[in-house]
């Protein structure tokens, strides 16, 4: 499994936030299972060539949120039971994603049914992949 985290300097979101979101996504998708180790701050900073303080800030926020846990002398791991996003947070993120898909569909002059079908296909693919990969 690669680090699976990318930072985009053209994104308005600060880099520590991009790291925070990236790890959350990996945990939510199952790519990082409960108890799985994370790259060390140094490793990830070196890989992405970013300031280690920025990586540390992203990690710290995830530790505070209970997504990650630090085991002294061992490193940083995904928590055994990482918290699920709150109802409001989940709805907000879903709306954001839906808006992006809707905008794309409108640009392509696709129908709502076409967009729904594409979403369902992508969904199936993801769920299958998760089962296969587990």
């Amino acid at each position: 499994m690669g680090s699976g985290i990318h930072v985009d300097f053209n994104d308005a979101a600060p880099i520590w936030h991009q790291i925070e979101e990236g790890v959350r996504r990996l945990v939510a998708s199952g790519a990082l299972a409960p108890g799985a180790p994370l790259p060390s701050v140094r490793e990830l900073a070196r890989e992405l060539r970013i300031n280690p303080a920025t990586v540390a800030k992203g990690y710290q926020r995830l530790v505070d949120a209970g997504v990650l846990q630090v085991r002294r002398g061992e490193g940083t791991f995904v928590a055994d039971a990482p918290p699920v996003a709150s109802e409001a947070e989940r709805r907000r993120e879903l709306c954001d994603g839906a808006r992006r898909l809707a905008a794309l569909a409108v640009t392509l002059r696709a129908s709502l049914d076409e967009a729904k079908a594409a979403l369902e296909a992508a969904w199936e693919e993801l769920v299958q992949g998760r089962k296969g990969g587990a």
């Binding site: 140094r42 900073a45 070196r46 060539r49 300031n51 280690p52 303080a53």
Partner: peptide, 14 residues
């Protein structure tokens, strides 16, 4: 250039 920045990142981490 890349090698230089990697070493710099290392120093910052340490």
């Amino acid at each position: 250039r890349r090698a230089l920045y990697e070493e710099l990142v290392d120093e910052l981490a340490d």
